[in-house]
Amino acid sequence: MIKKLKFRIGTWLLTFFFIFLYSCTPKINSFTVNKRTISANDTLQFNWDVTGHPTLLYHQRNITGPGTPDSAVVRYLEFTLVAQKNGKEAKKMIQVVTQPVNSTDSVVCATGLHGDTLIASCTKDSIRWGNNYRVVTVSSGSRRPLNVSHAGTTTLLDAAGTPSHAFEGTALNGAWRMSSLLTAAEKADMSTAAEKLSLIVTVKYETQ
């Protein structure tokens, strides 16, 4: 009983000690934004929970380079939350991408194999894309025919990349599923099989 009591007292003291330590230093417990991709006249909503005095810093940088949509300049808005307390600071940065009202994006998913069919499924998340981007057209980005399902609709895209309006008006975010038969060459040498499948999606930003 005494041993138990001692243990409890020790545990409480240790707990208070860590609570005390915790309260001495600045900490960013959470720092979130409602979307990571925006367009003109959009609004961002930030939420944060910090220990210490918070300051939100803003910085914009323009990046040109391969891999960016249309190889155009991409504007990154960088929001850095700094928490200060007792002469110390903690910080965390969130990048938000700005896109034109009409832009092009891709859906890219890693493949798995089901029989002689490549399957690629993934989910575009709403944190990055919000709910404002609506699909206009979808085409195959893998130079092969793709059977595509999204938002309750399924369609077949040709290898030539002809744009389809089958998903027009649906949200860009959400689950996407692509499937494609293995080619004869892939069947003969599986090391040449596609490790990812992709779609080229034209999107339009719509204010809700």
């Binding site: 391969p66 993934c122 989910t123 990055r128």
Partner: peptide, 13 residues
């Protein structure tokens, strides 16, 4: 490009 949640993440300088 790295893949995550249906998006490509290009390397950056």
């Amino acid at each position: 490009d790295n893949l995550y949640n249906g998006s490509s993440y290009p390397l950056f300088r």
